[in-house]
């Protein structure tokens, strides 16, 4: 079937299998491999992207369901000149990543969370990341990064 999806501001139309998941569409059809697949049960959040600005798990959505919608992936976060998004920069400043595999999903989940909770407590950040698993960092520095972005109030939506 034909789907037309705007990804990181670029609209494309492609013929895809009806069973193609959004994450496979992004990775295989659009060539955006920053979005990772870490599980098969909607548990780990590695595949998190923004659908019309809200975090969703792209492994639990058909490409067909994204037809006509706007998707933002990790590749769409930095400025065109390569300047990292404030969340990305905070992850670096606070050593919020190690192997980096969960990181794109974490960054996207935090982008959505901070839009809904611009001034969160630490507990709210932790609850807000309940759907994203990381095996390297113990979450401490990820939480610090999210809080730092909120404190700085520099989130661009």
């Amino acid at each position: 079937m034909q789907v037309t999806v705007t990804v990181n501001g670029t609209t494309g139309s492609h013929d895809v299998e009806t069973r193609m998941l959004l994450v496979h569409y992004l990775r295989e059809v659009r060539g955006l491999t920053g979005t990772n697949v870490g599980c098969d049960t909607t548990s780990c959040g590695a595949c998190t992207v923004l659908l019309n600005g809200e975090s969703v798990k792209s492994c639990t959505m058909l490409a067909a369901q994204a037809d006509g919608e706007e998707i933002t992936t990790i590749e769409g976060m930095a400025a065109p000149d390569g300047t990292l998004h404030p969340i990305q920069e905070a992850f670096r400043e606070h050593h919020g990543l190690q192997c980096g595999f969960c990181t794109p999903g974490m960054v996207m989940a935090i982008a959505s969370f901070l839009k809904e909770h611009p001034d969160p407590t630490e507990a709210e950040v932790r609850e807000g990341l309940e759907g994203n698993l990381c095996r390297c960092t113990g979450y401490h520095n990820i939480v610090q990064a999210a809080l730092a972005v909120a404190r700085a109030g520099e989130l661009v939506s």
Binding site: T42, T48, S55
Partner: peptide, 9 residues
């Protein structure tokens, strides 16, 4: 329900 991503869908 679930987590924020689940609640968005």
């Amino acid at each position: 329900v679930g987590d924020p991503q689940v609640r968005h869908r």
